[in-house]
């Protein structure tokens, strides 16, 4: 009897500790959200989304160029990181069971852990130094390098979850290994792969460090690949470290928009996954 009571008490304590841990884990999230909304919402206006930055001292103005720039950079990054990452993931699943595969896997994990500023320096050396010019391309490259390991590893993990009997079914019909991978395995894992891609996008959307000396910044509206381009994180950073009160307010508004961006990506990831999964189950 006594023993039972002790066990129940112990169980209660553990449940309480779990709840407390969850609470502690969520507090920062709520504070960040709350603070950003509180500070940023008042500065949000239609102009903020549609207008260009104004010189110091002139009231108003917005971050239209930075928002478009961020989308632009994400598209450039995704355009090469998604195919490279997915194909590398297919390689790891289908052919990477030996030493070289482990090496690739390890390298991807290390690359994933490399500080983003280092990635920025690498992209600087690769795409800025040779042409002696900051560019949107260099910024997209830096962000793409950060996406590749995430997409590679998610793709691999999700392909491993697809029943091997599907691969065998395709091979038994006379498919080559590559054909089976791309016509059966990848489509079967597509909901998860899409999620991985969107998570990777959400992850890099807010990166500042890799853009500081690749995409740099631009006071003007630009959609040129070879010109510097503005982005929300860099714009926020620039405004936040300035001494002007008005710019600080704009920085908060920008932060709110950026958080909103990432939030939308995350929700989108969920919705897309659900929808595709439902299609597969029919």
């Amino acid at each position: 009897m006594n023993r039972t009571r002790r066990r129940k008490a112990f169980s209660g304590i553990v449940v309480f500790l779990c709840g407390a841990a969850v609470f502690l884990a969520l507090i920062p999230l709520f504070f960040v959200f709350g603070y950003v909304i509180e500070k940023g919402f008042s500065s949000l206006s239609w102009d903020f989304f549609t207008r260009m930055p104004k010189p110091v001292g002139e009231p108003g103005g917005g971050m239209a160029n930075a928002m478009v720039g961020t989308v632009y950079l994400i598209v450039i990054a995704g355009a090469f990181a998604v195919p490279v990452g997915v194909i590398a993931g297919v390689y790891l699943t289908e052919y990477g069971k030996k030493t070289f595969g482990s090496l690739v896997r390890f390298t991807a994990d290390v690359l994933n852990g490399v500080p983003s500023i280092v990635i920025g320096i690498f992209a600087y050396g690769l795409a800025v130094l040779p042409v002696k010019h900051f560019s949107a391309l260099a910024g997209g490259l830096a962000l793409g390098f950060m996406m590749i390991p995430i997409i590679t590893r998610t793709t691999e993990e999700l392909l491993n979850l697809v029943p091997g009997t599907l691969r065998e079914g395709a091979l038994a019909l006379g498919a080559t290994r590559a054909r089976a991978a791309f016509s059966v395995m990848v489509p079967a894992a597509l909901p998860g792969i899409m999620t991985g891609v969107l998570v990777a996008l959400a992850r890099i959307a807010g990166e500042t460090a890799p853009l500081l000396f690749t995409a740099f910044n631009n006071r003007y509206f630009s959609t040129s690949l070879v010109q510097p381009i503005s982005s929300l994180p860099v714009q926020i950073y620039t405004y936040a470290v300035s001494p002007y009160e008005d710019w600080h307010r704009q920085a908060w508004a920008g932060a709110l928009v950026l958080v909103g961006f990432v939030f939308v990506f995350s929700v989108l990831a969920r919705v897309v996954t659900r929808r595709l999964e439902r299609m597969h189950r029919a």
Partner: peptide, 20 residues
């Protein structure tokens, strides 16, 4: 081997329709 598997087909223990 591709031609071989076309000529010798296979049905598996657990049905494995493609998600198509």
């Amino acid at each position: 081997i591709v031609d071989l598997r076309r000529r010798v087909g296979m049905v598996f223990q657990k049905s494995n329709p493609f998600p198509k």
